[in-house]
Simulated scan of single mutants.
Amino acid sequence: MKAVGLHRYLPIDEPDSLIEEEIEKPVAKGRDLLVKIAAVSVNPVDTKIRSPKAEKEDELKILGWDACGTVVQTGENCEWFQEGDEVYYAGDVNRQGSNSEYQLVDERIAAKKPESLSCAEAAAMPLTTLTAWEALFDRLRITKEDEGKTILIIGGAGGVGSIATQLAKQAGLTVAATASREETKDWCFKMGADHVINHHQELLPQLKAAGINGTEYILCLNDTDGHWEGMADVILPQGTICSIVENQHPLDLNLLKSKSAGFVWEFMFTRAMFQTDDMIKQREILTKAAKKFDQGKLHHTLTTVLKPFSAEQLKKAHAKLESGKMIGKLVVEYS
Score class of each variant (00 low, 15 high):
Glu147Ser: 13
Phe189Tyr: 15
Leu6Val: 09
Pro126Gln: 08
Glu115Asp: 07
Asp58Gly: 14
Gly226Asn: 06
Ile109Glu: 05
Ala232Tyr: 01
Asn254Ala: 12
Trp65Asn: 02
Glu216Gln: 15
Asp277Val: 15
Gln282Asp: 15
Arg95Ile: 00
Ser116Asn: 11
Lys25Ser: 13
Val93Gly: 08
Ser260Phe: 13
Gln103Tyr: 00
Val105Asp: 03
His199Arg: 14
Gly230Ile: 02
Thr150Pro: 02
Ser98His: 10
Cys220Asn: 15
Gly30Ser: 09
Asn254Phe: 06
Lys169Gly: 02
Met191Asp: 01
Lys25Gly: 04
Leu104Ile: 14
Gln96Val: 09
Leu255Asn: 01
Asn43Leu: 06
Leu152His: 03
Gln201Cys: 01
Thr74Ser: 09
Pro114Met: 04
Lys36Glu: 15
Glu76Ala: 08
Gly148Asp: 11
Thr276Pro: 07
Ala311Lys: 04
Asp294Asn: 15
Ala209Arg: 13
Glu83Asp: 03
Gln201Glu: 15
Gln103Trp: 02
Ala120Tyr: 04
Lys307Gly: 12
Asn99Glu: 10
Glu86Trp: 04
Lys144Ala: 14
Pro11His: 11
Val42Ser: 12
Ala39Asp: 02
Thr287Met: 07
Ser17His: 12
Leu251Cys: 02
Gly226Ser: 04
His299Phe: 05
Leu236Tyr: 00
Ser118Ile: 03
Glu22Ile: 05
Ala171Leu: 11
Ser323Pro: 05
Ala290Arg: 11
Ala122Cys: 09
Glu24Ser: 09
Gly156Lys: 08
Glu202Asn: 11
Leu104Phe: 12
Ser118Ala: 00
Lys25Leu: 11
